[in-house]
Write a protein that binds this DNA or RNA. Sequence first.
DNA 1: TTTAATATTGATAATGATTATCATTTGCCC
DNA 2: GGGCAAATGATAATCATTATCAATATTAAA
Lengths: 128, 128
Amino acid sequence: MQKLTTQRQAILDVINLSDKHWDADEVATALKERNNPIGIATVYRGLAALAELGLIESIQLADKKRYERASKDHHDHLVCQVCGMIEEFCKTEIERLQEIVAREHGFEIQDHQLLLFGICKSCKTGEK
Amino acid sequence: MQKLTTQRQAILDVINLSDKHWDADEVATALKERNNPIGIATVYRGLAALAELGLIESIQLADKKRYERASKDHHDHLVCQVCGMIEEFCKTEIERLQEIVAREHGFEIQDHQLLLFGICKSCKTGEK
DNA sequence: TTTAATATTGATAATGATTATCATTTGCCC
DNA sequence: GGGCAAATGATAATCATTATCAATATTAAA
Ligand SMILES: [Mn+2]
Ligand SMILES: [Mn+2]
Ligand SMILES: [Zn+2]
Ligand SMILES: [Zn+2]
């Protein structure tokens, strides 16, 4: 159903080369800098297709969607309200409790997103 | 700093009269039906002001922000991908674990949001 | 009270991320 | 080597939200 075209492969390569959480525009810019410009609409569609294929992961922030490598263990995110930094954490026990909640409600979980908003360590201490 | 004007009081009244999770447009429509139309920009500003004052709560969904009464215990949400229904749940243990995660990262939590996406009970069973 | 500073309102324009359109191109099956 | 379905890319459209700004309302001084 979803094909891994040349453009989509290029998008995937960009995302795989770092641990960043990319938005569509950042991906398009990175592609341009690699002398492989891809239309912004194609970037949006490519990101959606790659996520669909499970080759990348996405998180939905208030303003925009961000994508990251799928080759990491499942994790959730800490978002610094000061500098925008996105940190990651794993808490298996939380995941387990989510399943229990779902069972209690007769709800079938397909996906979830836990965001912790606040102030990161470096913004709280000496700054920078 | 934020004042509870007549308009904001009217917005608050609308939200307080049900357990719904309201978006700005729904609030504006409800106000119109109550023969108390309020400019949409004022509704947006009023909702932000009321949330700032802690008189209502908000959740950020992918497409839009929704507001609800603050006179409920803290809870998180189950969102049905089929019918859009939003259910609520409380899991103190999850909240506790979030604090532990934050401590481990030297992160100061100001807010958080946990969304479980999937299929609700009624959509899974008999439907309707 | 009058006056002045300040905040709010509401109509409307602007913003910004994302999606829709549509003509063109590409990749495949026969 | 043509036919088809999917993908591309330029661009227009969408839609929630914010910005603008003139008109009001509120409050604090004088
Ligand atoms: Mn991540
Ligand atoms: Mn709720
Ligand atoms: Zn920070
Ligand atoms: Zn449902």
